[in-house]
């Protein structure tokens, strides 16, 4: 479904992503894990066109995304919940959702909003509220709901657990599983390796811009290397 081949991303003279390749197959949950600064978010931003790779290719459903402008990528069926949520803080919850459906016909928006509210009843209660007044967990839900509004085939989530309490993290991951069961393929970037590996079909471990290890979620959660480096054991 998504095939990333040998991408290289630079910030000025810093070589942030080095020859990274990975794949996501339809119906999977794939996770990229790694420490802070390993390049996880950079990879997602490159896939969604906000950053560009020097060389390599990004194939999504048989079309090459590497030169498609960022604002055209969501219409291809690829939605990205960015790091730090980046919801529109001064707009209402509902307007944020409407922005998520920017590329879709107006006639389908209400149905999609209803669908988002089904997954996130809390957003419905707050739909007229200014998004900046939501709690961190609610903002994360809004960011995810907003991405769902584009009816993505592949949903990329960047650190959905960041800054949330363990109960909320559990809640967010339950929703991720729910979305997955309803047919959305998921690419998950996490620092919370334990959580990410427990839901993922496959995982890639990233270190200083390189993929150093790959395997199924279950394999990696048992691997000694991973336990030592990321799981505190």
């Amino acid at each position: 479904m998504l095939k990333v081949n040998n991408i290289n991303v630079y910030y000025g003279s810093i070589h942030a992503i080095k020859d990274v390749s990975f794949e996501v197959h339809p119906g999977e949950i794939v996770t990229l894990i790694g420490a802070n600064g390993a390049g996880k978010s950079t990879i997602l931003q490159t896939v969604s066109g906000l950053l560009r790779s020097k060389g390599g290719s990004i194939e999504f459903l048989d079309s090459d995304l590497s030169s498609v402008p960022a604002h055209k990528i969501v219409a291809e069926g690829l939605a990205h919940v960015p790091e730090g949520r980046r919801i529109f803080l001064q707009m209402t919850v509902e307007d944020n959702l409407i922005m998520g459906a920017y590329t879709r016909p107006n006639s389908e928006i209400n149905e999609s909003i209803a669908n988002v509210y089904k997954h996130f009843p809390r957003l419905k209660e707050r739909r007229k509220q200014i998004a900046g007044t939501l709690s961190g967990g609610e903002q994360q839900m809004l960011a995810m709901g907003r991405a769902m509004m584009s009816k993505p085939k592949l949903l990329m989530l960047d650190e959905p657990s960041m800054g949330l309490s363990p109960i909320l993290v559990q809640e967010i991951f339950d929703i991720i599983k729910e979305l997955h069961e309803s047919g959305t393929t998921i690419l998950l970037v996490e620092q919370n390796a334990q959580m990410a590996l427990s839901v993922a079909d496959r995982a890639y471990v990233l270190e200083s811009g390189k993929i150093v290890l790959t395997g199924t979620g279950a394999e990696l959660i048992e691997s000694d290397e991973i336990k030592k480096a990321y799981l505190g054991g």
Binding site: L50, H71, V74, A75, F88, Y102, T103
Partner: peptide, 13 residues
């Protein structure tokens, strides 16, 4: 508010 996030929504900035 946020040009990057706007682009992710499909808005032509």
């Amino acid at each position: 508010e946020d040009k990057g996030a706007a682009q992710l929504m499909g808005i032509n900035v």
